[in-house]
Structures are given as structure tokens and as C-alpha cells.
Amino acid sequence: MVPADLPDSLLSAPDRMLAAIGAVILGKPLQIRLALACLLARGHLLIEDQPGVGKSTLAQALAAVLGLPSRRVQFTSDLLPGDLIGSLLPDQTHGGLRFHPGPLFTPVLLADEINRASPRTQSALLEAMEERRVSVDGTRHELPNPFFVLATQNPSDQTGTFPLPESQMDRFLMRIELGYPDLAAERALLLGQDRRALLAAVTPCADAGLILALQAKVQAVYTAPAVLDYLQALLQASRVPGAFAGRLSPRAGLGWLQAARAWAWLDHRDHVLPEDLQAVLPAVTAHRLDPASPASEAPALAARLRQAVRLA
């Protein structure tokens, strides 16, 4: 099922990326795969877990492997929108005001501990994430392409956190949980090198052009009517009154399909199977079906949705 019309570099790039990140983040192949699928599906990724399980490391590794310029913003409660987007400053040479772009203007944005920022700052991210551009003082400024937000958040019951609004939750294509490593992985981690040193040693496997090409290829993965039927049935099942706290929006459906395509592509397939939809289901739907639920409840929510629909 390997498409024959592709150069070798395109074909092996995802595998190389997976392997490179896997060398840094040990024992988490599923999460790494999901993160990569999210990127290829042009979505934004939210990583939620306890401190210290490697959220930021994964985000940094991803950025490093992608070979894209990245910036990291540590979100705090006193972070203001201007600190993120940029601000208008007096121009010494030409006079008047000039826009100084903030850290948002980067292909990969690491938003660390995003739920520590105030709602105001978070809402500043909304337009940027969906439209991929920002408006300052009535002027639009396009963000670079590709633009990818990798956010980490602490579980919302921790002190000093604000829950993310549903509108922003919906803009994250996936929410994943890292979880503690298993015994073997943790032993390897303890024995291995310093993660920071490893991160510094990561060699980029891609560049902006390659990622754009990959995203276009993912977009072209074929989706059969039977798969669309199944997707629609799942979306409808989530909207049955009283079934779930939240409902899946059309945006969620679009993103889900795109994520399934990326998943199929990572599997070296040129068409989507229902299994691809199911594979990304917990990551794509759980934070939309119940925005207040922690990531640890995602499998249960996903199972409920899955079982509500009979797969023909």
C-alpha cells in the first residue's frame, strides 16, 4: 500500500522524525506519533500532565526535529497580550508608531504552562491559532506558514491555574497526556544522558518546505464514503442531547478527519480506515466532549462515544 509516486526523502521523513524524537522521549511512541500527526494535520497540540513528566521536553524535541525556528514563551498570570503579539512603539527614525512583532511570530510556538496566563492573554491567542494572523490596532499581520502552537498545561486543579475557555480548547486539535514512563523507560532515562544535552544534539530532519509538502500530501489522502459515514455518525452521536457535556463542532469534525488522514499517512497508507479515526479519537475528542475533564478521563469518554455508534 505504499504510494509509488514519491521521492524517498518524503517517504522516510516521518519515520526519521519519529525515531529522532523517540530518542529523547523514551517509552512514549504513541504520544510522539499523535503529536506528529497533529502537526501534519495543521493542528495545534496541547500537552497536559503533571509537572516533570517531560511535556516541555517533548515540545522542544518536536520543534528541534522539525528544524523550524521556535520560540518559547513561559505563560504567567501577569503576561499581557502585548507581550505575546507585539506592540506599537514609537519609531525613532521614521516617526509615528511601528509594529514590533512579539514572540508569536515564529513557526513553532512553545506555550509553556499556558493555563497560568490570564483569560485576556489566552484570548489573544484565539485569532492567531485559528486564522493564523493577528490584528493590532486594525492592521492585520500574517503569521509565518507553517504555524504550530505547542502548548503545555498543568492539570487545572493545581494552584495558580486558569481553566482554558472552551473556545480555545476547541482550537487545539489534540490534547494528549504523557503519563509516567514505565519501569524500563524510566531506568533508561535515569541511566541516559542529560535530556538537555540530548535536545541540543538533535539534528533537524525537516525544514519548512518539507513540512508544507508533507501537509499537502496528508491533505490528499483518500477518504472513502464509508469512512465519512462513520465520522458523521460519531459526530451525530456526540450531539445527542444529554449524551456528553460538550458536543463536537464542525471544526472538530474537520480536524478529526485531517488527523485521521495524517495517522493513515504515518502508517504508509494512501487511504483512511475507520481505525485511523478511532486511533486519534481520544486525543481529538475528549477535551471537546467534556472540557472540564482531565486528560486522564479521555479513554473513558472516547470509549463511550465509540460504543454509541455501530461500525458498518
Binding site: 458523521q232 451525530q236 452521536a237
Partner: peptide, 17 residues
């Protein structure tokens, strides 16, 4: 019945081939 569209989720879906 399910094949005929009286399906569990109570919505009409386009027929699956």
C-alpha cells in the same frame, strides 16, 4: 431495521455502500 436506517443514534445517514 438498522440497515434500513432505524439506527441507534436516531439520525438519518446517507446509505453506506
Amino acid at each position: 431495521l438498522a440497515a434500513a436506517g432505524v439506527s441507534g443514534i436516531g439520525v438519518d445517514l446517507p446509505p453506506t455502500p
